[in-house]
C-alpha cells in the first residue's frame, strides 16, 4: 500500500509523491505490533495459570484495553474487571458471555473453553 507524501523538488517547490513508507515509521509500527503480541502471549499464559479469565486474552487479541472493551459490551469498567477474574467468569450467565463473544467475533463456547494451552 502506498501513501501520498509532500516533498520538495530540486527548486524547493512542493509536489506530491507516492511512498511505501520509510524506515523510522516501519520501526515504530513493528515495535507496536511486537508489544501487542507480547501482551497477547502474556495474557495467554495468565489464562493458562488461571490468574485471569479468557476475557483478558481476547481483549488483548482484539488490541483493546478495559476502556474500549467496556464501551463495546456496554458495561462499567469495574464490571469488566470483575469478569476478568477466573472465579467470577465461571459464574457468568450465557447472555453476559454472549455480549463478550459477539464483540470478539467468536462463539460463547470458544470463549468459555479457551484455556490458554
Amino acid at each position: 500500500m502506498t501513501e501520498v507524501v509532500y516533498v520538495t523538488d530540486e527548486n524547493d517547490n512542493y509536489t506530491t509523491a507516492n511512498s511505501i513508507g520509510w524506515e523510522a515509521k516501519k520501526a515504530a509500527l513493528d515495535e507496536s505490533m511486537a508489544l501487542i503480541n507480547e501482551r497477547i502471549e502474556e495474557a495467554k499464559q495468565n489464562v493458562a495459570n488461571n490468574t485471569v479469565s479468557p476475557i483478558i486474552y481476547f481483549m488483548e487479541l482484539n488490541k483493546m484495553d478495559l476502556q474500549v472493551l467496556a464501551a463495546y459490551v456496554g458495561m462499567w469498567q469495574w464490571t469488566v474487571k470483575r469478569h476478568a477474574k477466573p472465579k467470577i467468569f465461571k459464574k457468568l450467565s450465557d447472555s453476559t458471555l454472549k455480549k463478550y463473544a459477539d464483540n470478539f467475533g467468536i462463539s460463547v463456547d470458544e470463549l468459555k473453553n479457551f484455556d490458554g494451552k
Binding site: K25, A28, S32
Partner: peptide, 30 residues
C-alpha cells in the same frame, strides 16, 4: 521506548495517512 514509538506514530499519523504535517504546511505556505 514504547512512548517514543507512539510519538513517532502520531507524527506520521498511522491509519490516517503518512507524511509529516510540517511538509503539508510547507506546501500550504508556498
Amino acid at each position: 521506548n514504547h512512548y517514543l514509538g507512539q510519538l513517532i506514530r502520531m507524527q506520521e499519523e498511522i491509519g490516517t495517512g503518512g507524511g509529516g504535517f510540517r511538509f503539508i504546511y510547507g506546501a500550504f505556505l508556498q
